[in-house]
Write a protein that binds this DNA or RNA. Structure first.
Lengths: 321, 321
DNA sequence: TATAATAAAGGAAACGTTTGCAACAAGAGA
DNA sequence: TCTCTTGTTGCAAACGTTTCCTTTATTATA
């Protein structure tokens, strides 16, 4: 492997001069610099990232921690992150695998964005304590080395309940998410508050884990207890789609017997029949903002707390009772 | 930052002994080793990935190059890769950003899986020439440092045309993919061969780039030229969904006037109405196999060529003429 | 002309590991 | 008692950079 040492020898200069030249430092004259660069190109020189990051203590890479890749959901999110980071000379890597939590402490990445409920909060805190920079998207944390950008789950959940109520639904099921999920808990809390405002509403909670299968299971419960048209708020679209799957095999019709609204507005939601009513927000913006905050944290040592707005998307999955 | 040097000082041994102990070498006695490990833990020692990889010339990380993250498509693929790699002590990172192509030459990753048509073949070849290990999923390459695992596009495209023909369609549109895509070209080639077997078939090619919008554009063409029921083979599902979007705004009905079959069996395809007929294959297996071949390449220096089987999924988007 | 200031280049340490080799002690065999 | 193993530990070089500090050469100033 050709190193700056080889270039130095070839050019008849010292390795420090080569290093300066390669980094475009004004300390070395135009001519020497040009000569060195030419030789570097000729020798097919490729810098060693390991050596550089060992010395400079930075990698210009930031990591995003996700629970799972699935769902078209993440595509836009990552796209948003990438753009912001790329513009600032950073690369984005998606961290997966059971050992990837070591990326941050072992300094393979300069910072991390967390969207992975399984990552322990204490562990994140200890990273921050050690001086690492983080942005959390899936929990609330207050630390000078941590910024956060969260969805406005409360507003979203309230919109959903209001929508069902407005359409005249008085019996409302809520399919919950996993306890470990901050978003799920926030949404649930808001739901509980919202239904209290409607004295006539009968409100029932059903188990759920944000996956399709649990949506199907919840649908089964609803089916068994069915006597009159009901409203259902699935705390995410994934489970709502699971419900569609179930009801397509029964005599109950979505939008007639069972009125469903979801949360997230994932891609499939606009293609199912009838179109799923849901709560929307810009995944792209969410990702971009998270990256921006991380860069601010790294460059300006400034931590911030931001919120992503949500809005209601109407759909024929919820009609008047 | 605490290094093995600090541990050595604290333990009163040399740094080499610490290194051996940390790596579980049998060269150091159980007692010394235990003492060293205890001190390491106490000092909160964290190894430096940069230093290690500088010395060992390996990172235990492999990279996957994707064109874009979008599409639930990639979720399963990555899942398959992760599992195989994780089991073997490797981490997977998804390489994105305009500078990520440097990951391989600068030795940030030990090998790469390529599924990115924009990556130049010559560049890949030069990597291989330098001794880097690759697996390509999106082109054909023959080199001792490159393995390949491709979809059986020919079989898939043939199945699709046969299906349309079998259902009695005599006028068949094919919505092409981008020229840069190996899969698109292989599928198209197979289509051209397949239609020759049916003398009565009138066959028309339409432009496409694998994205929804181009599917919509193609649908518009079909609409304008419409006089009798036609068959359409979209070279991927994404474009087929684009066609659905377009036709939902017209008086033409999918599965009645326009009979569509796609390729890939992405998630939405099973939710659109009517269900999209398509060509299926296991994304999980594709990813897992690619990883396996890469590991073989790294460990046993053995390059292989594999193929992923495809199958037809029937759907009401194609009915008898 | 002597001196100071400026510009260009080189020397060498440091970043944190790994690893071949040398050193040393202790016990075994002769 | 002497040499030979065997087992345990230490020394030091190397991996490829960056960067602080000198040294040397050049030009400007008094």
């Amino acid at each position: 492997m050709v190193s700056i040492k080889d270039i130095a020898k070839q050019a008849g200069v010292s390795i420090s001069t080569v290093s300066y030249a390669l980094n475009g430092s004004p300390k070395v004259t135009k001519e020497t610099s040009a000569r060195i660069l030419a030789i570097a190109k000729e020798l097919n020189y490729i810098p060693s990232a390991a050596a550089r990051s060992l010395k400079k203590r930075e990698t210009k890479i930031i990591g995003i921690y996700l629970t799972d890749y699935s769902g078209a959901f993440y595509g836009q999110l990552l796209q948003g992150m990438m753009e912001t980071l790329s513009e600032n000379g950073y690369e984005l890597i998606v961290c997966s695998g059971k050992e990837s939590h070591r990326f941050l402490p072992e300094r393979m990445i300069d910072g991390a964005i967390i969207l992975d409920a399984t990552y322990k909060t204490e562990e994140l805190l200890s990273h921050a304590e050690r001086g690492h920079k983080l942005v959390v998207m899936d929990r609330r944390m207050d630390h000078s080395n941590i910024s956060q950008v969260l969805l406005d789950n409360k507003a979203g959940a309230t919109l959903a309940i209001d929508y069902l109520a407005e359409k005249g639904h008085q019996k409302i099921y809520v399919v919950k998410g996993p306890d470990i999920s901050f978003d799920a808990m926030q949404r649930l809390e808001a739901v509980q508050k919202a239904v209290q405002r409607y004295s006539q509403i009968e409100y029932i909670e059903l188990q759920g884990d944000f996956n399709k299968l649990s949506g199907e299971a919840a649908a089964k419960r609803v089916h068994q207890e069915f006597s009159e048209p009901v409203g259902v708020f699935c705390l995410n679209d994934e489970m709502a789609i699971g419900m569609y799957n179930y009801f397509s095999r029964t005599n109950l019709r979505v939008g007639e017997d069972v009125h469903i609204i979801g949360f997230d507005n994932i891609e499939v939601s606009q293609y199912v029949q009838p179109r799923l009513a849901t709560i929307n927000y810009s995944k792209h913006k969410w990702g971009a903002l998270a990256s921006e905050l991380l860069l601010n944290l790294i460059k300006k040592q400034k931590n911030e707390h931001e919120r992503i707005n949500v809005s209601l998307i109407e759909g024929d999955s919820v009609r008047n009772r």
